[in-house]
Design a protein around this nucleic acid. Structure first.
Length: 460
RNA sequence: GGCCGGUUGGCAGAAUGGCUCAUGCAGAGGAUUGCAAAUCCUUCUAUAUCGGUUCAAUUCCGGUACCGGCCUCCA
């Protein structure tokens, strides 16, 4: 089989380029995960869904056993510390609970587990080593019990975010600490007070700066050079810029990530999601309205690189699309699945910088074709291809019957009884009773569908 | 203020130097149905604006307007 050529938009080169892995037998991707201090919001969910599709594509093209996907968990951070001060809960309790919520959300959204979900606190020793290397290589200095990265020692600093030192100074809104050689210098290690999380280090009891963990963990798990580094576009500066500087400083003659991929920000009704605007939604809240798969589909209807505008109308629309897809599957429940490959057009669309909207349009085509198919053999083929294709997007993972009926057995029994009563009425051409039952159920959000073989029902 | 990205039909959202600008939702009409639902068929509506390059631009280049992001913690 000829290798499929993947194209990705690289932030460093600022254009779409062909993707060539360092080692096609071990394609390596690192994606910045959440800081575990609160329930995941919609933005926290969108990014992993996007990289999940990329992961699925990489696995398809290079083979699952030839892909290593790392997504970190930041469990040491001042936001966690603040949460601890606010709530009185222990740091451990906060991070464990938030981590578990996150994993649950990811599972609901059908995000495949990465090969590694490393936690920052498990790699402190590696971070300390990294700081030592940076000091030894002349890229860092100590000041006021802190260790700082010396950006002037790295002439290429600023190239990822496409900004020069001068620009950064012009735009700086923060007060510059006077112990910094350059205002852009950032913290590698800082001291902790007795009650704060900390570790012993050559620079005293303290904790790492935010950016350090990703440099340390990617190096440890993927090597100093690896293929793809991803995250939200808000991380380009300063986070990724700083990671890049640290890693290249610590490991001279390496490139760190060879491809930088960033996802567009999520907005709510056209404006940035923020707590102060009152348009802040957690994944949990949104999933009370519609199933997780609808949210997943919705995320994929916009190209990942574009800003994504979330609306509840859009979410509802996504649910309606899935209803259509599951309708097609429901009608073919008795049709066996056969060995099938995903639609090549969908692979092609995804390989072209993850064009999920185009891929979804082909999914629609396939569903339409399936709905029109006559014989069972043809249907089996089409259904199987549809499922294989949907898998690439992580969609259609629910049972079609459960999708429409839910799992409430008591309710199911009650509905079935009413349907039987209505069937009797229909037999006697008692249309008034038949319609009355239809209306009773309709008010409860249950739609009846008559067919030559009997009546089925759905929740809408 | 600096840097970056965007502006396609009622809405969502792809693609493309030229032939009818995909797909979905919504709308209209029809088939089917006891009624309905689902499905199928047909169908209306768009490339922000002003210039330039070109035989030809929505697509390339430049200006303008508007929107968003980043410059500070952020997926």
């Amino acid at each position: 089989m000829t290798q499929i050529q993947i194209y990705l938009h690289d932030t460093l080169k600022q254009r779409k380029i062909p993707f060539t892995p360092i080692d096609k037998n071990n394609v390596r991707m690192y994606v910045c995960g959440p800081t575990v201090y609160d329930k995941a919001h919609l933005g926290n969910a969108k990014t992993p869904v996007v990289y999940d599709v990329l992961y699925r594509l990489l696995c398809y093209v290079y083979g699952k056993e030839h892909v290593t996907y790392v997504s970190n968990i930041t469990d040491v951070d001042d936001k966690i510390l603040n949460k601890h001060k606010e709530t009185g809960k222990s740091i451990h309790e906060i991070t464990e609970q938030t981590y578990n919520w996150y994993i649950e959300d990811m599972a609901k959204l059908n995000v495949l587990a990465p090969n590694y979900r490393p936690r920052a606190t498990e790699y402190i020793a590696d971070m300390i080593e990294l700081v030592k290397k940076l000091l030894a290589n002349g890229h860092a200095y100590e000041a006021e019990k802190q260790v700082l990265f010396d950006v002037d020692s790295m002439p290429s600093y600023g190239r990822l975010s496409g900004r020069s030192m001068k620009e950064m100074l012009a735009g700086a809104r923060i007060e510059v600490a006077d112990y910094k050689k350059n205002p852009a210098d950032f913290i590698l290690w800082k001291p902790s007070d007795a009650g704060q999380p900390g570790w012993d280090s050559p620079w005293g009891y303290g904790r790492p700066g935010w950016h350090l963990e990703c440099s340390a963990m990617s190096s440890k798990l993927l090597g100093n050079d690896f293929d793809i580094h991803g995250g939200g576009s808000d991380l380009i500066f300063p986070h990724h810029e700083n990671e890049l500087a640290q890693s290249c400083g610590a490991f001279p003659n390496t490139k760190f990530a060879h491809y930088w991929v960033h996802t567009g920000m999520l907005m709510i009704d056209g404006v940035k999601m923020s707590k102060s605007l009152g348009n802040f939604y957690t994944v949990e809240e949104v999933l009370q309205k519609e199933p997780a798969e609808a949210l997943r589909l919705l995320f994929l209807t916009t190209h990942y690189h574009q800003p994504f505008n979330f609306t509840f109308e859009g979410l509802h629309n996504a649910k309606a699309i899935l209803d259509k897809f599951y309708n097609a599957l429901l009608k073919n429940t008795d049709v066996p699945t056969v060995e099938a490959q995903p639609n090549p057009k969908i692979i092609e669309a995804l390989a072209d910088d993850l064009n999920t909207p185009l891929a979804l349009s082909y999914l629609h085509e396939m569903v339409n074709t399936l709905n029109k198919a006559e014989n069972t053999q043809e249907r089996a083929k089409l259904k199987s291809e549809l499922l294989a294709s949907a898998y690439m997007l992580g969609l259609l993972y629910n049972n079609p019957e459960a999708w429409f009926k839910g799992e409430n057995n008591e309710e199911t029994a009650e509905i079935e009884t009413l349907i039987q009563k209505r069937a009797d009425a229909k037999k006697n051409k008692d249309w008034a009773t038949a319609d009355a039952i239809r209306n009773i159920l309709k008010e409860r959000g249950i739609v009846l569908e008559d067919s030559p073989t009997g009546t089925t029902w759905k929740k809408i």
